[in-house]
Amino acid sequence: MKNIQLVFIVVLFGIVAADITVNKEKRCSCPSFIKSECDKWYDCKWSETSCQEKECKDYTTEDKCSGDCQWKGGKCIDEKKECEDMPNEESCSNFAGCGWKDNKCIEFTQCSDFIVSKAERCNVLRGENDERCQAKGVSVTTLRQKHLVVATGFQCENKVYVNCSKFVTEATCKGEATATAKCQWKSDGKCYAFELKTCRDADGFNSMCDPKYCKKDGQQCVNRSCSDLTTQALCTSIPKIDNNKAILCKWGADNKCTNAIDTTHLNEQTCNDVTFGSYHWVTNTCQQCASNWILSIVSLIILVAFI
């Protein structure tokens, strides 16, 4: 037990002293915000003395009326959109889990059930298990009218993936290997299924070292760091490849950008913006929202319990 407690203390100290990573998908809830923060978020509203979640009726434009709300009769109402609410093929194709069939929008069943007017609309069809579709070649179903052949659509079929290793030249090294990986030519003269999960994955792939997350260091592709940012205006955060996260940066008295280990450099104006809403301004300090902090502690306790 003493060993577990020691591990817990060491790990906890490491978290406190470590770089700050913020998750853009773990934004604070509206009630956590002060007024200046509340006004920045489209789904929050200030009501007399506190920030609250907006209701469907609070959205006055169709583009903001989403989620469990639906735009009907020129206003946003409390009614979740379903496939059957999509009025045409285009809107149906853009709505997850739906497909256009027999002039109506239905829940996705299987790729072969759908015939679309544009080949690319097969590509956006998705099943519950992320089943993907593609247009069946360039062929179309036809309808004969007055001895003329009229195209009525593109038949969809299950997505066909390629075996990248079969390609022996850079020119032919193309196509999708999986739902997330594509064929890319490597400097060793072979074709591989490539997916950028870490910067080092791009070693040997000439153009795949994504400058948004990574940088070239000789022949290697490595993570960008705050020190790569050379102006104070840009010294806010560095995005990470995984899970929509970012590392916070801090501009120092030496006019250099470094990784931040706390949020004391942030103020009421920058706290919420720089942390993508995952921190808020309270008691004159920039603090992580309680729900996010509790989640981190719970995760840590679970980790230690299994050591």
Results as ranks from 00 to 15, higher is better:
Asn3Ser: 12
Leu6Arg: 12
Leu6Met: 10
Phe13Met: 04
Ile15Tyr: 07
Ala17Tyr: 05
Asp19Gln: 09
Ile20Asn: 02
Cys28Phe: 00
Ser29His: 12
Ser29Leu: 14
Cys30Ala: 05
Cys30Glu: 12
Pro31Met: 13
Ser32His: 14
Ser32Arg: 08
Ile34Tyr: 03
Ser36Leu: 06
Ser36Ile: 08
Cys38Glu: 05
Asp43Ser: 08
Asp43Val: 08
Lys45Thr: 11
Ser47Cys: 05
Cys51Pro: 04
Lys54Cys: 04
Lys54Met: 07
Asp58Ile: 01
Thr60Pro: 02
Thr61His: 09
Glu62Thr: 09
Glu62Ile: 10
Lys64Gln: 14
Lys64Gly: 00
Lys64Met: 08
Cys65Glu: 11
Ser66Pro: 00
Gly67Leu: 00
Gly67Arg: 01
Asp68Val: 02
Gln70Pro: 00
Cys76Leu: 06
Glu82Phe: 00
Glu84Ser: 15
Glu89Asp: 04
Glu90Cys: 05
Glu90Ala: 13
Glu90Ile: 13
Ser91Lys: 15
Ser93Trp: 07
Ala96Ser: 14
Lys101Arg: 12
Asp102Gly: 01
Glu107His: 06
Ser112Lys: 15
Phe114Arg: 10
Ser117Asp: 13
Gly127Phe: 10
Asn129Thr: 08
Glu131Tyr: 00
Cys133Ala: 09
Ala135His: 08
Ala135Phe: 13
Val138Ile: 12
Val140Ala: 13
Leu143Glu: 14
Leu143His: 12
Arg144Tyr: 11
Gln145Gly: 08
Leu148Gln: 14
Ala151Cys: 05
Cys156Thr: 09
Tyr161Leu: 01
Val162Glu: 02
Asn163Trp: 02
Glu170Val: 14
Lys174Asp: 13
Gly175Ser: 11
Thr180Pro: 01
Lys186Asn: 15
Lys190Phe: 01
Tyr192Asp: 05
Ala193Glu: 13
Phe194Leu: 06
Lys197Ile: 11
Ala202Arg: 06
Asp203Ser: 04
Gly204Gln: 02
Ser207Gly: 15
Asp210Ala: 14
Pro211Val: 02
Tyr213Arg: 10
Tyr213Asp: 13
Cys214Ala: 09
Lys215Glu: 12
Gln219Arg: 12
Gln220Ile: 04
Cys221Ser: 13
Val222Phe: 00
Val222Ser: 03
Arg224Pro: 02
Arg224Gly: 02
Ser225Lys: 04
Cys226Gly: 03
Leu229Arg: 01
Thr230Arg: 14
Thr231Val: 07
Asp242Gly: 07
Lys250Leu: 04
Trp251Arg: 04
Cys257Glu: 11
Ala260Arg: 04
Ala260Glu: 03
Ile261Asp: 11
Asp262Thr: 11
His265Asn: 13
Leu266Tyr: 07
Gln269Met: 06
Thr270Cys: 04
Phe276Ala: 09
Gly277Gln: 04
Tyr279Gln: 03
Trp281Cys: 01
Val282Phe: 07
Cys289Leu: 10
Cys289Pro: 10
Ala290Cys: 08
Ser299Glu: 08
Leu300Met: 13
Val304Ile: 15
Ile307Leu: 14
